[in-house]
Design a protein around this nucleic acid. Sequence first.
DNA 1: GCATTGACGAAGG
DNA 2: CCCTTCGCCAATG
Length: 128
Amino acid sequence: MKKKTAVKEEKPRETLADRHYSFFQNVYEIVRQVPKGRVTSYGAIAKYLGSGSSARMVGWAMHGTGDIKPKVPAHRVVNRNGMLSGKVHFNPPSRMQELLEKEGIKVVKDTIVDFRKKFWDPMEELGL
DNA sequence: GCATTGACGAAGG
DNA sequence: CCCTTCGCCAATG
């Protein structure tokens, strides 16, 4: 058997679509478990779900969080820098920071203060 | 059906 | 230290 195109190889890797449960649904469940006063990152969630490089999908999953129930505290999810990268998608954008501060999290210049301390890692908290 | 975008992140220059 | 590129993959044009 000859391989003409050696550029692209087969991907035995399991894609998100192969999973029995919706990737988005899993994301929502995890985010709902983030306790008040704590935050997590898109990447951490992606990693916990076994798709370490699919952090973007986690962010994309947040698009439905405004409509679904029970409510998903999307404001507790920020990027790996602790920046409120998704604030512009809130209504109004300042809403994200307000919610966080209401939970005892300080935000300065769209960045969470003491992010490392407030960080909630599903890997550790929910077990590997 | 291909090209671009995107609430990310790691790696390379 | 800042900028670019790449991987990831669903949604959108």
